[in-house]
Amino acid sequence: MPTHLENETELVAEARAGSAEAFTTLVNQYDRNIYRLALNITGNPEDAEDVLQETFLKAYTNLGRFEGHSRFYTWLVRIGVNESLMKLRRRHADRWVSLDAPVETDEQETLPREVEDWGENPEQQYARRELADILAEELRKLDPAFRTVIVLRDMENFSTEETAALLNLSVPAVKSRLLRARLKIRERLNKYFKRG
């Protein structure tokens, strides 16, 4: 989650009163995070750019409805997640599985198949951009129901309860998906980080 701007409440109030400069400061703070969120959920750069634009346009248009009960960033993410899921539904209408459909938990499937130790500092084995590409690529291979919870919980650092609220899921459903998602990704990352 990006750093909270100290004067964010004032900036939001100024933007609501019509200050383009204040709104631009908010855009500058959060544009990369919203783009990354959208890219990781949709898996498509064109869709991610559309989501980025729609998120900030909707935020600007609906600033009057932001009541300040949550962080401004959480509100932006809610818009971004909804826009991203709409893109996914449109693009994969033929094989869309609802995010709130129950996910069968097969404990045998969840059990790790590959158990290989990693080095102490896996992130130091790759350059920053290369590591980011690896993480994004492996995330993209996950089913949207799983990758969406990883994006919100582990990349954006929302709590399990916040993630559940953002996705309109129950806390147990988020935990169940998170477990499977983390184990699947761990197994896929073995090939990059295992010792030897």
Binding site: Y35, D154, R182, L189
Partner: peptide, 17 residues
């Protein structure tokens, strides 16, 4: 290794647009 997986994603800063 699952803990390290979570840390890798947590520490991954967004790249420039």
């Amino acid at each position: 290794t699952t803990r390290k997986t979570i840390e890798l994603y947590c520490r991954c800063e967004p790249l420039p647009l």
